[in-house]
Design a binder for these strands. Structure first.
Lengths: 223, 223
DNA sequence: CCTACCGATCGGTAGG
DNA sequence: CCTACCGATCGGTAGG
């Protein structure tokens, strides 16, 4: 990505250029997808705190340091901003899951029990770790997407969820997990996803302890 | 409660009273808290479908067969409508739980495992059964309440949740439930509450089957 | 990306 | 509970 040369205003008197009017943006703030990213970040945060309908595009613009109309230079409309947040959230989730599983493979952790631990821990990372506004927005602002956007997000979501089923089926086959694996998966996702409502990063439990408790709750001991 | 005598309009010509102007409301539609109840019902439904911020008081009025300004005759503001929905939802939940436990007592079901089944089933009833808009609104529109309203709703919610802990502690003591009962309770509530997002009453699973699967997932078999 | 603006909608009220 | 209405806010756009 080539650095854009600083374009001066030819008609501005040189001495006052830096002191009059609104402060100049630094080069770094201007170029490439930087501002788009700032909008997504701000939108994720506000959508999570106040919901989609409860957040104005002006709020988002202000949080990203822009004027009221500027978000529409980067996104077609408010809904496209929401879809952007969700797609980014799911891409991160899929990628983090992929890396976690690859690392487990490299460490020779092929046991279904170990793999479930990896999946649960990666899930908590994405849901409760730093920068964790994107996925909760996906989970809770679902209904505000158009049908087409929903389908697009759903493709990533299905890929993410698909990784769980073979692991749960293996655990069911070995007797470590009881009940229909499909229904069990829904209940387990619920248990994990609900943590976004109550987990406090400053509180007592760490993500490791949470993972332990969840696995202890769902799985039987090895015979 | 004394029946209100039908008050006629003294200056309305008798013959046309029933045919001109907007149709008369029947007595039944007019008196007491009937209209208030219709507003709560409509609000619960719309808040659930579209969220609090995404629903206008005009939508609610129309759904209850009123004009735009009329909800404010019954409720101070939009937020009071939301609080009304949540309080009604929690009152129903607490009452249903109380009845279910009383019935279990009468049937001599004092075993902790049996009591957990009763609690789970009653929870699903309130969350997924007929008229199940009130509690999901409570679960998902939390942030739109004022601090004072939140405290009021929380009192009922704490009472509801308090019934679970001794049962879970007994199951933990007997080895049927693993992990800290406090954390386990949060995970279990998550698994159950999340069902409001995916359960389809027209689908395959019944509430009984759901209850079975949940108990099988969380509890170990008797030794 | 900002400025200036528009039409629509919203929560809420006065007065009956 | 309706009628008529108000001020504020909102998503979005034209033109630079």
């Amino acid at each position: 990505m080539p650095a854009t040369p600083p374009t001066d205003f030819p008609d501005a008197p040189d001495a006052t250029r830096r002191t009059r009017g609104r402060p100049r943006k630094t080069l770094d703030e201007r170029d490439d997808g930087n501002r788009r990213q700032a909008l997504l970040q701000a939108a994720a945060h506000l959508f999570r705190q106040q919901g989609f309908a409860g957040t104005s595009t002006r709020d988002i613009a202000a949080a990203a340091g822009m004027q009221a109309g500027s978000p529409f230079y980067h996104f077609e409309n408010k809904q496209a901003l929401l879809a952007g947040v969700m797609l980014e959230g799911m891409q991160r989730a899929v990628e983090h899951q992929r890396q976690a599983l690859a690392q487990a493979d490299a460490a020779g952790q092929v046991d279904a029990r170990q793999r479930l631990r990896v999946l649960v821990r990666a899930h908590f990372d994405v849901l409760l770790g730093p920068q964790s506004d994107f996925v909760p927005v996906m989970l809770y602002e679902w209904r505000s997407l158009s049908a087409g956007q929903r389908a697009e997000v759903n493709r990533l979501r299905s890929a993410y969820e698909a990784a769980w089923l073979p692991v749960l089926q293996a655990l069911h086959a070995s007797g470590a997990l009881r009940g229909d694996p499909g229904l069990a998966r829904l209940l387990i996702f619920g248990a994990l996803n609900w943590s976004a409502q109550w987990f406090d990063a400053r509180g007592r439990a760490t993500l490791d302890e949470l993972t332990d408790t969840a696995l202890t709750l769902f799985l039987r001991d090895a015979a």
